[in-house]
């Protein structure tokens, strides 16, 4: 199982005061120490946020049906690209990708499971929408798996977890979607 989260950095610029208040609400003592000692506090803050948020989505997939309380999730970066997220009895592994424009995180229960991902920029003036993300995932899946155009659909279940359908039949694969500002990304287990 895996889940993802993306943060558009331009969309989420905060004043220093606001950023520090945000940090005080969301992160535990150890996380705060790490962030405030960092040379890029804002970027690292959004990396930790994306780790917590993707960890939350993964915890829902694992059956932890609670609301997202950021302080329930503790995260740690081992190096620039690899980290871990802990919540209750769960211990997840995270992979972080960072560009000048966004930070993107994938968090896994079992990192050896095969997943396909794509991060892309919106073609719309309003920025990335859920519909654009669904369409991109459907089109990419149709191409990758040689399905007929229009045969793949994405729908969310009652727990707001996205599911992939081919010709109206739900497929036994994991889907995680994220969008923020101009950017969107999907993460799907191999079909």
């Amino acid at each position: 199982m895996g889940a993802n989260d993306i943060v558009d950095l331009a969309q989420n610029q905060l004043t220093r005061r606001r950023r520090d208040r945000f940090i005080s609400k969301v992160f535990n003592r150890k996380e705060k120490q790490f962030l405030l000692a960092s040379t890029e506090v804002s970027t690292k803050m959004w990396i930790y946020w994306a780790m917590k948020e993707s960890g939350y989505k993964l915890s829902v997939q694992c059956g932890r049906m609670k609301r997202f309380i950021p302080l329930d999730f503790s995260c740690e970066l081992i190096n620039q690209h690899i980290g871990s997220v802990r919540v209750d009895q769960f211990h997840f592994k995270s992979f972080v990708f960072q560009t000048r424009d966004y930070v993107y995180c994938e968090t896994y229960l079992n990192p050896s499971e095969r997943f396909v991902h794509n991060v892309f920029e919106s073609t719309l003036a309003v920025g990335m929408t859920s519909n654009e993300l669904y369409r991109q995932l459907a089109e990419d899946t149709e191409k990758r798996c040689h399905f007929k155009p229009g045969s793949v659909q994405i729908k969310k279940n009652v727990y707001q977890i996205p599911q992939l359908y081919v010709n109206g039949k739900q497929q036994p694969i994991r889907v995680s979607l994220t969008h923020d500002g101009k950017f969107g990304a999907y993460l799907v287990s191999s079909l």
């Binding site: 989420n12 606001r18 208040r21 945000f22 005080s24 609400k25 969301v26 946020w49 950021p70 302080l71």
Partner: peptide, 24 residues
């Protein structure tokens, strides 16, 4: 979720109160 934290910060400013982390 990130904007929900913004809502909390704006509520604190507007009403001049502090919402404790455990109250989130």
């Amino acid at each position: 979720s990130a904007h929900l934290i913004d809502v909390v910060l704006d509520i604190e400013d507007h009403f001049d109160i502090t919402i404790e982390n455990e109250e989130l």
